Amino acid sequence: RGEEQDLYELLGNLIDNAGKWARTRVVVDVRREGDLLCFTVDDDGPGIPEALRDRMFERGVQLDEQRPGSGLGLDIVRALAQTYGGSVQAQASPLGGARLRLCLPAAD
């Protein structure tokens, strides 16, 4: 359920962000967890300090001003996820970098 373009926007922003920070590796996983469809994007970059993980989803916030970007992509992800009744979180990745986890209600 939902607009195909919104899914492209959600995943495109998450994967693009991981690609900017990854040293050599980005891993994308999707699985159904009960009533949710969860997408996990891991990278092997420097990671995100826990204290900044919520702030990075705010409009216009860039954690590193030296990297290209407008600080809008992750805010768009958060807003679209909420529109569909889902959520997005930043966590530590087992690859050593960041894990961004997007969960959306699964279609029946």
Rank of each mutant, 00 (worst) to 15 (best):
R1G: 01
G2S: 08
E4N: 07
Q5F: 03
D6F: 00
L7M: 07
E9D: 06
G12D: 04
L14Y: 15
I15V: 07
I15L: 07
N17C: 05
N17T: 06
A18I: 04
A18W: 06
G19H: 13
G19C: 15
K20L: 01
W21G: 06
R23A: 00
R23P: 00
R23E: 04
V26P: 09
V28F: 03
D29L: 14
D29N: 10
R31T: 01
R32P: 10
R32W: 02
E33I: 06
E33Y: 09
L37M: 11
C38N: 14
F39T: 02
F39P: 08
V41P: 13
V41C: 06
D43K: 10
D43V: 01
D44G: 08
D44I: 02
G47Q: 14
P49S: 13
E50S: 12
A51K: 10
D54K: 12
F57P: 11
E58V: 00
E58Q: 11
R59M: 00
G60Y: 09
V61D: 11
Q62M: 11
L63E: 13
R67T: 06
P68V: 09
G69S: 06
G69Y: 02
G71N: 03
L72R: 05
L74G: 02
I76K: 11
V77I: 04
R78K: 08
A81E: 02
A81R: 07
A81C: 03
A81V: 00
T83W: 00
T83P: 02
G85L: 03
G86I: 00
S87Y: 09
V88N: 15
Q89G: 06
Q91L: 04
A92P: 15
S93Q: 09
L95P: 14
L95Y: 14
L95Q: 11
G96I: 07
G97V: 04
A98Q: 14
L100F: 07
L102K: 09
L104N: 06
A107P: 12
D108L: 01
